[in-house]
């Protein structure tokens, strides 16, 4: 199809990435290096997630791509069109019917099923990077479980704002061992990582690292005893579907202070409106 191998990448590359993925699944939360390839889009647009998607995609799979929860934003539309063209796979916007869901910044609101795979696009895979610039040192810290500095960041939040003000890319400990950056998902989604039915894969294209959370794995968000982990809450409900449980985006509607809160997960919102209507 169009002179490209199925799903763009050549078979050797896909095999190499699959091997790395097997290792990542075997060691939950551990960052596995892989020989990242050039993708026909800039770094930061989801090249890591795309390489993972390309290497796990089969001809019979149904693909869904979301960006900030929405199926109709630029990143989601272009990646979906890309795989339609180079793999000829069926695509969908319905969370329930997709086998592979590539995502940026969100986990779908609808619960995932055991036969689904969620692929995350990751900008900076190293949670320790903000405090330790040396890659050699951070790897050593992971190897020796020196995770005290992660707490320093949270301490600093409380000292400055009176509460843990980290709202996205909130660090988690996977299976009681590796501290992991769950990619810039809101901390609202962190509980969905814990004991998930679906396999979760994370790919960082620029840094050429991938990692995974296998299904039914313990994932704990870091916190303090007297400042436990909490997720965001809203006083409003979704202006379109009325949901009080989903993650809401604030949308400015005019230049006179008009605003509304709507679900960030468009498929969830549409489904609910269909049900409600």
């Amino acid at each position: 199809m169009n002179g490209y191998n199925f799903a763009y990448l050549d078979e050797q590359t896909k095999r190499m990435i699959r091997r790395a993925l097997l290792k990542a699944v075997a060691i939950p939360g551990y960052q596995v290096p892989f020989g990242g390839r050039e993708m026909p889009m800039p770094y930061g647009w989801g090249t890591g997630g795309m390489q993972l998607t390309a290497s796990i995609l089969g001809a019979g799979d149904v693909l869904k791509v979301i960006d900030q929860g929405a199926d109709d934003t630029t990143n989601a539309v272009s990646i979906r069109a890309f795989f339609e063209r180079v793999a000829g796979v069926e695509t969908t916007t319905a969370t329930g019917t997709a086998n592979v869901i590539q995502t940026r910044h969100r986990i779908p609101e609808a619960p995932l099923a055991p036969d689904q795979i969620l692929v995350f696009q990751v900008p900076i895979p190293e949670p320790l990077r903000f405090i330790e610039p040396s890659e050699q040192e951070t790897r050593l810290m992971h190897a020796l479980e020196e995770y005290g500095v992660m707490q320093v960041k949270l301490y600093e939040d409380i000292a400055r704002y009176g509460h843990i003000a980290t709202t996205y890319a909130y660090p988690v400990k996977v299976d009681g061992r590796y501290v992991m950056d769950p990619s810039p998902i809101p901390k609202f989604d962190n509980p969905k990582l814990h004991q998930s039915d679906a396999l979760m894969l994370f790919g960082a294209g620029r840094e050429k690292r991938l990692y995974a959370i296998p299904p039914y794995t313990r994932v704990e968000s870091l916190d303090f005893e007297d400042h436990p982990f909490e997720i965001q809450r809203w006083d409003e409900s979704c202006a379109l579907c009325g949901s009080r449980e989903s993650f809401l985006d604030e949308v400015i509607t005019d230049d006179a202070g008009g605003r509304m809160f709507v679900c960030s997960d468009t498929d969830y919102c549409l489904t609910r409106r269909g049900e409600l209507a």
């Binding site: 020196e146 005290g148 500095v149 707490q151 320093v152 301490y155 409380i158 916190d223 303090f224 005893e225 007297d226 400042h227």
Partner: peptide
């Protein structure tokens, strides 16, 4: 506090 946190102290107060 960093060395204490490295020791496993998890109480902000």
């Amino acid at each position: 506090g960093e060395r204490l946190m490295a020791l496993g102290q998890r109480h902000y107060g």
